[in-house]
């Protein structure tokens, strides 16, 4: 009988609750969390403050004025709050996860904890969920601060649909954090050194953030024929470019956010004249249609999280506990 065929008894989730609670409490009370929150406030508050400054001067009527706090990039500072989140979230997630498993190893607590009635499954999942809950708390706090600031400075209550869209945006932000948390957890399982793990996580993020858009573009250009003769050809090439760009979780997040916070968005690529038939330019989509539009992006983010976490899980199961 092969060893892998042996069925183990007892739930894989035994002990998940205590691990989750400990990780969550540790994160919330840690000095690292304070630093990360300072980082978030520094990078998040500035775009929000500037965009609020600008939005106060807007006189034309805008049905989704409140959502513009998140998306508008003021002239004085060419980054919007959403763009700032695009790199705040990965840095936070990596900061919370890069030493999750290897620090237990280095402090020699791993074998002691695993000698309690608990499977490795529960330990890894508890660490992931603890990190994700921390991230969710931090992002929700940030979201509420932005909302509150908007209420105070714009003097205008958001409409229900705006709150709903902003709420969906918060969910997308947490899902985006999940990908990077899982990735940093994976590196913390692979590497014994926390520095190496942090470096690899940040390196991967920089690769997707800075290099991948250029690489995707270069590949697309390489695949394109010398002369584009028809609209179909152009669309096909554009499609390749989009598919490549979507390998980056950042692209998925950006598209999801654009779809949610700019209700006018109907597609992420070009539209053929045939598709434009009957469209009122600039008219917003209803929320459910926007959700359908960004559904693939959300699925991609969640699926990415699951795949990366599964990889971490498989490697962790095979790892020797002894130092």
């Amino acid at each position: 009988m092969s060893r892998s065929a042996v069925r183990r008894e007892g739930s894989a989730f035994t002990g998940l609750g205590p691990v989750f609670m400990k990780e969550f409490a540790d994160h919330l009370s840690s000095a690292r969390m304070m630093v990360l929150m300072l980082f978030v406030i520094a990078f998040g508050a500035f775009p929000v403050a500037s965009s609020l400054q600008q939005l106060r001067t807007v006189t034309e009527s805008d049905a989704f004025l409140f959502l513009r706090i998140f998306t508008s990039a003021p002239d004085s500072l060419p980054i919007s709050f959403v763009f700032a989140l695009n790199f705040i979230i990965p840095v936070m997630a990596i900061g919370l996860g890069f030493d999750a498993v290897n620090s237990e190893f280095n402090h020699r607590t791993l074998s002691r904890v695993l000698s309690q009635p608990i499977y490795r499954d529960a330990l890894l999942l508890g660490k992931f969920l603890g990190g994700l809950a921390t991230l969710a708390v931090a992002l929700t706090a940030l979201w509420l601060i932005v909302f509150g600031a908007g209420l105070l400075l714009l003097g205008l209550p958001p409409r229900g649909v705006e709150v709903a869209r902003a709420g969906c945006f918060l969910v997308a932000a947490i899902a985006y954090g999940g990908v990077w948390l899982a990735a940093s957890l994976l590196f913390s399982v692979i590497f014994r050194s926390t520095a190496t793990s942090a470096l690899c996580s940040l390196g991967l993020w920089l690769f997707f953030f800075l290099l991948w858009p250029m690489i995707a573009q270069a590949i697309t250009l390489g695949l394109a024929p010398a002369q584009i003769r028809s609209a179909e050809e152009y669309l096909a090439i554009e499609q390749i470019g989009l598919v490549l760009a979507r390998f980056s979780p950042g692209t998925l997040f950006s598209e999801a956010v654009v779809g949610l916070l700019n209700p006018e968005t109907r597609t992420f690529g070009s539209m053929l004249p045939a598709q434009m038939r009957g469209v009122i330019p600039g008219a917003p989509l209803p929320l459910d249609q926007s959700l359908i539009l960004i559904w693939p992006q959300m699925t991609g983010l969640i699926a990415g999280t699951i795949v990366v976490f599964a990889a971490a899980y498989v490697i962790f199961q095979r790892e020797e506990v002894r130092a």
């Binding site: 060893r3 042996v6 069925r7 183990r8 008894e9 007892g10 035994t14 000698s115 309690q116 009635p117 608990i118 499977y119």
Partner: peptide, 12 residues
């Protein structure tokens, strides 16, 4: 191998 939780509950 099959019942690690039971073992680990009773062994320090």
């Amino acid at each position: 191998v099959r019942q690690p939780l039971e073992v680990k509950r009773r062994v320090g």
